[in-house]
Structures are given as structure tokens and as C-alpha cells.
Amino acid sequence: MPLLQFTDRGIYCKRAGIYIDPWKPVDKALITHGHADHARYGHGHYLCHHHSKPVLQLRLGTNIEIQTVTYHESINVNGVTISFHPAGHIIGSAQIRLEYKGCIWVVSGDYKIEDDGLSGAFEPVKCHYFITECTFGLPVYKWRPQKEVFDDINHWWQKNKEAGKTTVIIGYSLGKAQRIIQGLDTSIGPILTHGAVENINQALRNDGVSLNETIRVTADFNKNQLNGSIVVAPPSAAGTTWMKKFHPYSIGIASGWMGLRGARRRRSVDRGFVLSDHADWIGLNQAINESGAEYVIATHGYTNAFARWLNEKGIQAGVESTMFEGELSEINEGSGGKAVNDEVQN
């Protein structure tokens, strides 16, 4: 029997009696990172990286049973050696490595290769079996270095300021928002935040993470405070009356989906910036090569095409369906929909 299996509750290690990112309540859950489709409510015990803890507590309550580890720290459960390794996706995100009798599995969770300066640098982990996301697993998705994207965003912000407009940038509240905040040129103006973003900021700062200064937009917010500022807000805020406070404004979205013209036009925002916390086509291929895996399992994204591509290249690959928001995150570009919307990582 393989060390890991795909069950209707999640990715299961029978030997150790644990699940990884399960989508139905279980006793023991290892959590790769704090996004809603990976860290769900109702498990008996949670084990995650210590930077994920404040987010899990914020989202799932402080009364959850939670234990944390640092990267590379080994835990032994019934002969299975378990360790967490940087995934570069968001703060606290980890690939989880499991080894039993010399056979090594790695569950990537979500990851990206470029070091964003906030989420830790992705670390290739040698393994036999690699379970990978492939949200952007088609060769049309290729990212530019984040420095260039931030130059564009700052330039746009500066221009808006000169035109007497507020700038509103949309990114999901855990991960993307903080990455944007760190990439902004604070000499242009103040950074304002939506409550959902600021709650995460607060939790991270309490945990010792240092972020650029931000101002929470509260109910008694006064228009005079705008003054050439940029507002960082989650996707769910776009198109709501909350936005009226900032009029006149120019609005942009930072997302990997913005790499396609159709998606940009569909959102009918002023600007689409291609900035993703997932690996692009090149990154996915690089990660798989560097893992040295003999067998790859694609879980969410363009799984069929990606697995076929790997097989043709001589890397055995299969597809397993999970409840991770892979292809479905396409639709979560839009406003409305589920409550977890602004945390589904695109």
C-alpha cells in the first residue's frame, strides 16, 4: 500500500494516522498553509508551520487544538518521519515531506519559485513521489519578475495621484495583500487597507512579522484622508458600495489570471497586473525536475494537460481530484460566490 492515499476526506497517511489539508473533519490534520481550501474547520488536531498559526486562529478560532513546527524540524509518528519545508506561496506555507522506510513523498500544497521576500524561499525537496498543484499548468502562464510588476503598479499609483485619483488594488487578503503592501513605494502616499486585509496584517504583526505601515479604512473614514493614497482590498470588495468612499478612483487587480486578455476584459477593471503566488509554467517544471520525483500526482489546476505533458517527457504522472480550488478558482475571479472567495488564491 502506498504511503499516501487519496480518500474522500483528503490526502491520507494510514501509517501515521494523519491527513494533509483534509476537506472533511478528521482527528489529525497537517496543514500546508492558511488558505481556506487547505485549512478547514472541524479537525481534532492541527499541525502547521508557526507562521500559519495566527492565521488559523484568526480564521478558525483560538480554541482549536494547534501545534506548530519550524521548517526542517522532524517529527516521527509510528515510523513515519515528517518535516515541513518552505513553499514560497504565502507566509508560513510549507511543502510537507513524509518518509517511511526510505520512500519519500512530498505534498507541495501551493507554491511559487520566486522569492517574494515575505513567504520564504521555495526549497526543492528530493523525493520519489511529488504531489503538485498546477493551477497555472499551461505554457501561456509565465510570470515576469515581481520587481517589474511592482514598478508598473507604483507607476500607475503615481499617475493616478497626479490625476487626483485614489488607487484601489485588489488582491486576496491573506498573502497577496501583504506581498503588495511590501512592494509598494511608500514615498508616493499612504497605504489604506480593507478590514479583511488589516485583520490578517494585525495577526501577522502580532506574530512578529514586519510589514509597511497601513491604515485601516473604518466606518467613520473621512474622504479628506485619501490624499493620493492606495487602497488594498480583497476581491469581495470590488463593486460594492464600500468602494464609493474612494471616488474618483482607478482600480486594478493583481492576479495570475490577469495574464490573459479575456480575463482582464471580463473583470472590466482599469488595470490587470500579472502577479501570482503560484508557480508559473516554468516554475512548475523546474520544481518537478528538481524534486527528482519518479512519479508526480497533479491535484488542482490544468491537471490533465499537465500530467500528459509530464508523461510525454518521460516523467510518470497521474491526476487525483481533490477539494482544492483548482480549476474552480477560475470562477472565483468574480465578486460574490462563496465566503472564502477572497482567500482563494489566484
Binding site: L138, P139, V140, K142, L260, Y302, A305, W309, E312
Partner: peptide, 29 residues
């Protein structure tokens, strides 16, 4: 030039929905 098989180009084209754009994206920098 993008070093991908034809079927993967077609798959990408269906997702992008525009031939001119697909070609421009497949291409290396």
C-alpha cells in the same frame, strides 16, 4: 519555438480563446 507539442498548444489556445494571443504568450522572452 515554444518547445511544446501541438496538442498542448491547442489546449492552451482553448483556454486563451485567441490565437494571436496564444502565440504571443507561448513564446520565450
Amino acid at each position: 519555438v515554444g518547445e511544446i507539442p501541438d496538442w498542448l498548444f491547442e489546449e492552451s489556445y482553448h483556454v486563451v480563446g485567441d490565437l494571436a494571443e496564444t502565440i504571443s504568450l507561448i513564446f520565450p522572452q
